[in-house]
Amino acid sequence: MNKLKVNTITLPPSVLNVYKPPDLPYLEKVVTAGEPCTLNTAVKWASSHKDIKFYNAYGLTETTVCAANYEFTKGLGHEDFNRDIPIGKEIPGACVYLFDELPQPVPPDVVAEIYVGVLGLSKGYIGHASHYNTDKFIRNPLSDDMLLFKTGDYAFQDPDGT
């Protein structure tokens, strides 16, 4: 990466944690995705010797990867360094919902399952996994024009929509 002067990377936190910011002096932007990212990892990179923009992205293979994004800025006060940082807000072209078991939307601060709709959403599984389609790919109860993917992940929404 140094030989090529790479300035932007996307890595899962477990791989990112193999490096230290001084190891990659050309970096300007770090995107982490693929697994939960702790505050400790975000602080390490966003508070490095130079200003590196740090993003936590969320998405799934079925949603053509990214559906939500969170820009971490140094100086955010959090009490627990082992806490996962937020997955952020939906990106343009994506819809991210938190639904109860009905499925219906839940208010902020209520833990519920994440459902994602994006323009590139798969139409379903084929072959040996196709029997999961009716459980995992559902019509959006709020809009008939979009298919949603039931992720199996759970979250809550802050009052600001994060």
Rank of each mutant, 00 (worst) to 15 (best):
H131R: 06
S48N: 11
V96R: 00
Y125L: 07
V111K: 11
P107I: 14
V43Q: 11
A94E: 01
L148C: 03
I52H: 09
K53C: 09
I87W: 13
R139T: 11
A112I: 11
F156N: 07
Y132P: 09
N133Y: 06
S130H: 10
S143T: 10
P159H: 06
I52M: 09
I87P: 08
T61G: 04
A155L: 08
E35C: 08
F156C: 09
T151E: 01
K50F: 04
L102C: 08
H128K: 15
D158I: 01
G124S: 00
K89C: 06
L98W: 10
P159Y: 03
T63F: 11
K44E: 14
N69Q: 12
L147K: 14
K89G: 04
L76Y: 11
G127V: 06
N82Y: 12
G59C: 01
L76Q: 12
D144C: 08
D158N: 05
L121P: 00
K150T: 03
V96G: 00
Y132A: 12
D153M: 00
E71S: 03
G120K: 14
D145V: 07
S130M: 11
P105C: 02
D160S: 05
Q157G: 01
I114H: 08
L39S: 14
Y154P: 00
G93N: 09
A112Y: 06
Q104H: 10
G120H: 12
Y132H: 14
D80C: 09
D160C: 02
V31H: 15
L39V: 15
N56L: 00
A129C: 01
F72K: 06
E79V: 10
D100I: 06
Y125C: 08
E79W: 12
D100V: 06
C95I: 15
T32Y: 04
V118R: 14
V110I: 08
V118P: 05
N133F: 09
D153T: 01
L76R: 11
K53D: 13
D144Y: 05
V43M: 07
G75I: 03
F99M: 09
A94T: 02
E35T: 04
S122T: 03
N69T: 13
L98F: 10
D158F: 05
G88L: 04
